[in-house]
Amino acid sequence: MRAMDEATVRHVARLARLELTEADVRRFAADMSKITDFVSALREVDVQGAEMTLHPIANRNQWREDEAQPGFKREDAVSNAADSEQNFFKVPPVIE
């Protein structure tokens, strides 16, 4: 198993929207190399004829009548937000 290099760690952190310090990058490169090395033992398993199990139970769509049910009030939904205005979530600008 190839060791995970720091460039890969930076790329994955970008995908995951995680700010990492330089010390984090070095630490995760070492940790994740060890873990992916451990996990690569799965390559030795004969999985011929084995479908993927994504979930332990057969999950089907479940339908109900399209009727309003009691739910959150807007003020409850925004009550934990860092910032809100008139019951909307408020975020820093994402476009100029």
Partner: peptide
């Protein structure tokens, strides 16, 4: 936010899962 809020093990799992 995510870099500050999550601890090392949570970050490690998010990294591993994302990879």
């Amino acid at each position: 936010t995510r870099g500050t809020g999550f601890g090392p093990e949570v970050k490690r799992r998010i990294m591993l899962g994302t990879y």
